[in-house]
Amino acid sequence: MSPPALPTPPFDRDAARRLREQLGMGPEHVARTMRASYGVDVPPETITDWERGQHSPTGPELQALAGALWCGPDDLLRAPSTLLEHRWVRGLTSADLARLAGIPPKDYDRLERRNRWTGSAAQTAALGAALGLSPPELLLLTGHREA
């Protein structure tokens, strides 16, 4: 049995291709920059696969790709829709977000895996502040919109 696939950020392949082309770089240039400047070794074919939507970069790959393309990681992401995606966009670790929301890290990890928020009102407010969410965004993310 193979291990479960790791989740990946909500990668925007069109934005990555557009940014690369605006810089006049080919996939081989991006791969070389990622390796030389960030220590992330991916072949040019992987860059092409990302841009075709066949695969998505992992968190560390996304960081290196953003650096190679002279942009922020959030410039390479679609609008986040899950707890995990919102955390990635903000560049927070799960332990950091758990601390900011006032939740034990083990409990936060469980909530993130299930993508089902059950925190208290105070924890919900702290989560919204940590993620920089507007009240409507926070209600949608936590599933409390109906309430």
Rank of each mutant, 00 (worst) to 15 (best):
S120E: 02
D75T: 04
Q54E: 10
M25V: 07
G59Q: 13
L138P: 01
V30C: 03
E146N: 10
R78W: 01
L140Q: 13
A15V: 00
A129H: 11
L84N: 08
A101Y: 01
L100G: 10
V30Y: 00
P10S: 06
L77A: 09
W88L: 08
H55I: 11
H29K: 14
Q123P: 01
A31M: 01
T8K: 02
E137N: 05
P4G: 07
R35T: 14
G128H: 09
L76K: 07
Q63Y: 11
L111K: 13
I47K: 04
W50H: 02
L65D: 02
S2G: 14
P27D: 06
A66G: 00
M34V: 05
G67N: 03
R87Q: 07
D74F: 11
L138K: 06
R20F: 08
E85M: 00
R32N: 14
P43H: 12
N115A: 06
S94Y: 08
L84Y: 11
W117V: 09
P73N: 07
N115H: 09
M1T: 15
V40A: 05
V30S: 02
T124D: 06
L69R: 03
H29I: 10
A16M: 02
Q63H: 13
L97P: 02
P43Y: 04
T48R: 13
D107E: 12
L138M: 09
I47Y: 00
E45F: 10
P44R: 04
D109C: 14
L62V: 05
P135V: 09
D107I: 13
T118G: 13
R145A: 12
R20P: 07
A122S: 14
L76H: 05
D41P: 10
L62D: 03
T124P: 09
R18G: 07
L6R: 15
E137A: 08
L77R: 12
A125N: 11
Q123K: 03
P104W: 02
L77T: 13
G143V: 05
A5G: 08
R114Q: 15
T118R: 14
E85Q: 10
T46V: 12
S81P: 02
R20W: 08
M1R: 14
D109G: 13
G72A: 15
V40L: 05
P27V: 03
L97Q: 02
W88F: 01
E21V: 12
Y108M: 11
R113C: 11
G143D: 04
D41C: 10
P27Q: 06
Y38L: 06
L139Q: 12
G72H: 15
L76I: 04
P9M: 04
A64D: 06
E146D: 09
V40Q: 06
W70H: 15
L76F: 10
K106A: 15
P4Q: 10
G132M: 02
N115F: 05
D74I: 12
E21W: 08
A68D: 00
L65V: 08
H86I: 10
G102A: 03
R17K: 12
L76Y: 07
L141N: 04
G53T: 01
R52E: 08
V40W: 00
S2W: 12
L127S: 08
G132H: 06
V89Y: 04
A64K: 01
R32I: 10
P105S: 04
